Amino acid sequence: MTIKQLTSAIIEAACDLWRRGDIVAIPTETVYGLAADAEQDAAVAKIFTVKGRPQFNPLILHVSSLEQLADYVEVTPLLTKAAAAFWPGPLTLVLKRKSGAKLSYLVTAGLDSVAVRLPAHPIAQELIQAYGKPLAAPSANKSNSISPTSAEDVAASLGNDVPLIIDGGQTRIGLESTIVDLTSETSTILRPGGVTFEDLNKVFGQMRYAEVGAAITAPGMLKRHYAPSIPMRLNVLEKQANEVMLGFGNVEGDLNLSEQGDLGEAAANLFRMMRLLDNPVNRAIAVAPIPYWGLGIAINDRLSRAATREI
Rank of each mutant, 00 (worst) to 15 (best):
A83V: 13
A84Y: 10
A85K: 05
P88G: 11
G89L: 05
P90C: 06
P90F: 01
L91K: 00
T92P: 08
T92W: 00
L95S: 01
K96D: 11
R97T: 14
G100T: 07
L103H: 01
V107R: 04
V107N: 02
A109F: 10
L111F: 08
S113D: 09
A115G: 10
A115I: 04
A115L: 03
V116Q: 03
V116A: 10
R117S: 06
L118S: 14
L118A: 12
H121F: 06
P122E: 06
I128Y: 08
K133T: 03
P134W: 00
A136R: 02
A137M: 05
S139N: 02
N141G: 07
K142G: 09
K142F: 08
N144A: 14
S150D: 09
S150P: 05
S150V: 03
S150E: 05
D153R: 03
A155T: 12
G159N: 14
V162I: 11
I165D: 07
I165W: 01
I166C: 08
G169F: 01
G174A: 02
E176P: 01
T178Q: 02
T178K: 02
D181T: 07
D181C: 05
L182H: 06
S184I: 12
E185G: 14
T186M: 12
L190Q: 10
R191A: 02
R191F: 05
G193K: 01
G194L: 09
V195P: 10
E198I: 06
D199F: 02
L200D: 07
L200T: 07
K202Y: 03
V203S: 06
V203T: 14
M207V: 15
R208Q: 15
E211A: 15
A214T: 11
A214F: 01
I216H: 02
T217L: 15
